[in-house]
């Protein structure tokens, strides 16, 4: 019995140890969101015009399945990452198709990359932050978007 208890305690500790990390992450993301509140999921910058991204985020956020969205764009590329509400995650693939189609109709002269992946969401948000700080020029941004595109297409 005591040995059983010890075993359970070890699992418990393992879980606690592992669970703390995401919690920290969650806080930091929430922190980011707090700073973001004044913005709307797009960066405002003079170096690269983000009006397309801004429009895209507004359009996508209007869908009721989407919890949050963030986007960046260059002259001919638009990268949008979004999070789907938990109960709609069953239909994630269909939603991805729909969102992509919607954006392709809206911005026919942009190369559209959409992803519902959490990793892409983090990365896109990072990019958006960099643009906000004027840390980016068109070419660098283009390269970053290409990199994320490759990441989003990776399958196991």
């Amino acid at each position: 019995m005591i040995k059983q208890l010890i075993g359970m305690m070890i699992i418990g500790l393992l879980l606690l140890g592992c669970a703390r990390e995401p919690e920290v992450k969650k806080q930091s993301i929430q922190g980011k969101n707090m700073i973001q509140l004044s913005t709307d999921g797009t960066a405002h910058s003079n170096a690269v015009s983000q009006s397309v991204a801004q429009q895209a985020v507004e359009q996508v956020k209007a869908r009721k399945e989407i919890r949050d969205a963030v986007a960046v764009n260059t002259k001919n590329k638009l990268l949008l990452a979004y999070q789907v509400k938990q109960m709609d995650r069953f239909r994630m693939r269909q939603i991805e198709k729909d969102v992509k189609q919607q954006l392709e109709l809206l911005f026919p002269d942009h190369d559209i990359i959409v992803s519902s992946d959490l990793k892409l969401f983090w990365k896109t948000d990072e990019l958006r932050g960099k643009i906000q700080k004027d840390d980016m020029n068109e070419r660098k941004l283009d390269k970053q978007i290409e990199k994320l595109k490759k990441l989003s297409e990776e399958r196991t």
Partner: peptide, 8 residues
């Protein structure tokens, strides 16, 4: 650099 897809 793992995504939800590849982290499995």
């Amino acid at each position: 650099d793992f995504t939800e897809q590849t982290a499995g």
